[in-house]
Nucleic acid binder design. Structure first.
Length: 114
DNA sequence: GGTTTGACCCTAA
DNA sequence: ATTAGGGCCAAAC
């Protein structure tokens, strides 16, 4: 049979984010690519913003393409995410009010070649 | 069902 | 190098 649309975009994103190993991070665009929607980076962020309740999802490992923590939302603070990442062994640098992560070192390379 | 809104990304000036 | 603007796709209103 043909698989039309079994999972929602929401579920796809959740599933992908859960695959990010501890100590690694992924960008929104990267996650978007994994769910076959390379241009849907914003929606990934939208999905993650809607989670916030269960801690099952490692939303902390998803950052923007600049390697910076984008969150400045009401629910969760950037510092909160930074602390979570540091607890996982990710080196986070605080600079000019934002938290930066070295993507070269910590970006998740799911199965990509270099 | 059209409009607005994003935890974004890319290109141009 | 930094700043500004448009585009993008999916969900909420």
């Amino acid at each position: 049979m043909i698989k039309i649309i079994t999972l929602n975009f929401f579920d796809e994103v959740i599933k992908t984010v859960k695959k990010i190993p501890q100590g690694k991070v992924a960008t929104y665009g990267q996650v978007a690519s994994l769910v076959s929607a390379p241009r849907a980076a914003r929606q990934v962020g939208w999905v993650l913003s809607r989670i916030k309740s269960p801690t099952d999802i490692p939303w902390q490992r998803v950052i923007n393409s600049k390697g910076m923590v984008s969150i400045e939302s009401m629910a969760v603070s950037k510092r909160e995410q930074a602390k979570r990442l540091q607890a996982e062994g990710v080196e986070v640098v605080f600079r000019d009010g934002n938290w930066f992560i070295d993507l070269d070192k910590y970006q998740w390379r799911h199965s990509e070649l270099t």
